[in-house]
Computed example of a mutant assay.
Amino acid sequence: MEQTKTETTFGKLDQMVETMEQHLNLSYIESLPVALEFLFTHEKPEGSNDILLQQLEKLGESIALSDLSKEEIRKTIQLCVLKGMKGATQQQHLITPDTVAMFIGYLVQKLIDPKQTVRLFDPACGSANLLTAVVNQLKQKVESYGSDVDPTLIQLALMNANLQQSEIEFFHQDSLRSFLLEPVDLVVSDLPVGYYPDDVQAKEYELKADEGHSYAHHLFIEQSLKYTKEAGYLLFVIPNFLFESDQAKKLHGFLHKHAHIVGLLQLPMSIFKSESNAKSILILQKKGNNTKAPKQALMAQLPSFKDVRAMNNILEKINHWFQEEGF
């Protein structure tokens, strides 16, 4: 039933975005936040004429957001984002698969006390799909923050949160510069992979490259630890080659000094186009006075999310590990 609702709403929103695309001479992905803003505010989009406004109002009336759950709204927007990013070559313009976002939410619930208010941050939030997917799974009060340098994506993130009625504070900035942000309990992020072009700013980091450009994904890990409270947790979607690159030795040393490696879960190959795109979930805990490394880190190769029996088996093992480690 939920799938049908999501698909129906996507069809209508997709039509609205395409209508804007034609009239406003914008790309699909640029038209999407404008369409979402119209749904949220009902105000005439900049540069639109009366004909477009009439079409938008008609389409807008057919979208009953009040009948949708937060997750249905998130998934509808996600389908539009996926359509808009088809063929996008930029690594940062890829969206975290839904199954991965759900799995990260499950892990977060295992790590965090369900009675405490949680401060949550995604320093590379993109359209806020991962961030809102995790927020929607948490039962306790959550204070959420997201940051992204891309103007279209941060606009999308804001409208995504608004339409889901999720209170999230967003920063539109280079996430590897300083934030006006108190340390958080939890970081979740699908790390942007590649080189960071600002060598001057990179010099501020322990994980800067000895020569040439530094790896953005390394700097994001360091920056995230900086804004995490002692004993707080960090869950990153990382490339499988993270610990095999030419700067891996430095990263190992840095993590050993500042964090405990709680776990490394290799995501199923079936969700990636090729082996070079394959990723894992890295779970870290920032070191503190009373923290200690797990007796044995949680290591697993996850089966296909479609294989229910294999997935249930691995979840049993993961649940057992959390019990053994005293979470």
Rank of each mutant, 00 (worst) to 15 (best):
A35H: 00
L82N: 13
P33F: 05
G84F: 03
G11I: 08
I51M: 14
E21A: 05
E61G: 03
E46P: 05
F10K: 05
G84I: 03
S66P: 07
F38C: 03
Y28C: 11
L82T: 07
L24N: 02
L24M: 06
P45K: 04
L24Q: 02
F40R: 15
L68T: 02
D14I: 02
S69N: 07
S48I: 04
H42R: 15
K12P: 02
I51T: 15
D14K: 08
E30A: 12
V17H: 01
K44T: 11
S69Q: 09
G11A: 15
Q22C: 07
V81L: 06
L52M: 11
L79P: 04
I73M: 01
Q55L: 11
D50S: 12
L82R: 05
S69K: 12
T41P: 02
L36T: 00
E7F: 11
G47Y: 01
I73V: 15
N49A: 05
K12M: 15
I73P: 00
L56S: 00
L65Y: 08
Y28F: 13
S62Q: 14
L26G: 08
F10G: 09
K12V: 12
L65D: 00
K70Q: 12
I73Y: 01
E37Y: 03
T8S: 12
F38R: 00
A64W: 09
A64K: 15
L39R: 01
E43F: 09
N25G: 11
Y28N: 06
I63T: 02
V34P: 00
V17A: 09
E30H: 08
L65E: 04
P33D: 07
T41N: 09
R74Y: 07
I73H: 00
L39Y: 06
D67Y: 03
L56D: 07
L53N: 02
K75N: 14
L68F: 03
T8E: 13
A64F: 10
T9S: 10
K58A: 12
P45M: 06
K75Y: 10
S66Q: 15
A64R: 13
E30Y: 07
I29A: 01
L39S: 04
L82A: 08
V17Q: 03
E72T: 07
K75R: 14
L36Q: 01
E57H: 10
I63H: 03
